[in-house]
Amino acid sequence: MDLSIFVILFQDGVVSAAIYALLALAMVLVFTVTRVIFVPIGEFVSFGALSLAALELGRAPGTVWLLLLFGLASGIVTLWSERRVLTARIWLRTLAETVVLPVAVAALVLLLAPHRPSQWLQVLLALAVTVPLGLFLYGAVYRPLAQASVLVLLIVSVALHIALVGLGLIFFGAEGSRTAPLSQVSLTLGDLSLSGQALAVLVVTAVLIAGLYLFFGRTLIGKALQATAVNRLGAQLVGISPLFSGRFAFGLAALIGTAGGILISPLTTIYYDTGFIIGLKGFVAAIIGGLVSYPVAAGAALLVGIIESFASFFASELKEVIVFMIIVPILFVRSRRSLVLEDEE
């Protein structure tokens, strides 16, 4: 292997790593705030990419139907869980959030899609569909299980993932799509040539991470999410409702997942079920960070991306196996270190 191949592999690795890092951060966020291991974040990657691909073809993406569906489900769950204290205000608010909003978004998408709006508008439309979907998933699926154990929440996450993949097949079909690059520029620095899309991935990732950093460090809402992660009861006692934090975390995760999908889809063909594998690699990074540490998760994402890139060169058939096996030594080291008994009550 000569240096130029090394550089190319390294560069590919860093670009995928950026996406994995985003997903890992979203998983850490959702886990620390809600104790949910958000396996379906991979579906947001697929759905984001495939929605954008549909919009590029001048078609309304199938995700609008999902939005309407889960909006309705979330509305029903909300009304049911607040049935004892139902007021006209709650009725109206729930109706506006779970019916009017999705219908409005769907109408907008259906109206605009055939006109092939500009790329930026397409991206915004894709986000407008998937971010509320994240909120509705929380409302319909996880909210009724707020008291459940991490394990039950995990089973639910995996079940939701399976169901969403199936729905993805219905709405997007079995064919894969690749979207147009967000940027056509290409940089050349000696041997190193960087495509516009790769650059876009790195820039957007950096902006998102910086944005998250500022959001958590500077805003009271960001701190409220952090507070929920640090001390759930304490957060409740100062009036931060778990519902509020949960929705916010899921909304952010949906945004990040979709962004990941939009960023990666010009680089690789995305199928209805590709997101899961991409999400899992983010997940491997999050796990290495113990599902609590943002910096370790981001660093681990870099490791995962680069290992994957080199593995695909040397043993392309086993690249997934090699990536997932990274966690074995990590878990082994962790298990040697934490021999303290834990009572799971």
């Binding site: 507070a227 640090v230 001390n231 009861l233 304490g234 957060a235």
Partner: peptide, 8 residues
């Protein structure tokens, strides 16, 4: 138990 946000 006070329930403070200890890391803040």
């Amino acid at each position: 138990k006070r329930e403070l946000f200890v890391s803040m």
